[in-house]
Design a protein around this nucleic acid. Structure first.
Lengths: 105, 105
DNA sequence: TGGGTACGTAACAACAAGGGTACATACCGA
DNA sequence: TCGGTATGTACCCTTGTTGTTACGTACCCA
């Protein structure tokens, strides 16, 4: 969990996930999508691999990266107790609005 | 969004949110919960304020911090398209299991 | 009004993150 | 087997982050 949120802090890495959400991609394809040089992309991919956010399979000299969305489940779970709180707040807000409406009628 | 995920990358800050999830707390109370010195905590709180994850109100010389869970909604929304993907995967897995059961019967 | 309490900010040191260049590795095809 | 393609690793440099100490500010109370 810790490591996943850490990995998500970098905007480039998030964009990589976004690309992989649409389709698998080779390291080279991913690199083209960023203003930084290939080795940098390679390192970002290593981080994403490290926390299990992506999988790699080798196809000759290409490395094909695919998204592993399950790794984000833990973020979702981390969010859960907070979700309960903001939902309560929204409910309260809706109640407030409803009361306002009633008062106006 | 960007900034919120950035803020969440630090484990100390996440712990602070966890504490505030239970109850509002003063800067001093929060500081006691961490091995780091008060000024460090103060800066973490500034970050959390900056991204809207906490609110402060002043009570004499105390600063009382409260959680603002709504700020996490954007993380939840960022997660949404990925959630769709991992659910598909889980569904597929369940289907697979069901098929396995059928085959065994 | 002077002193204690509760915080925040400023300035600095130490370390980690992220980028670049150069190089190593592995594979394919002529 | 040699050259080209695709990619990762090593090393270095710069910048950002996180922690520390020292100091400033605001408030309460005797």
């Amino acid at each position: 969990m810790d490591a996943v949120l850490q990995a998500l802090a970098d905007p480039n890495r998030r964009t990589m996930l976004e690309i992989l959400r649409d389709h698998p991609a080779t390291a080279g394809e991913l690199a083209e999508a960023f203003p930084i040089a290939r080795p940098g992309v390679s390192r970002h991919l290593r981080v994403l691999r490290g926390v299990g956010l992506v999988d790699v399979r080798q196809d000759a000299q290409r490395r094909i990266y695919t998204l592993r969305p399950e790794a984000l489940v833990e973020v979702d779970e981390w969010l859960e107790p907070y979700r309960a709180l903001w939902r309560n707040r929204l409910d309260a807000l809706h109640t407030e609005i409803a009361r306002g409406k009633k008062a106006r009628n």
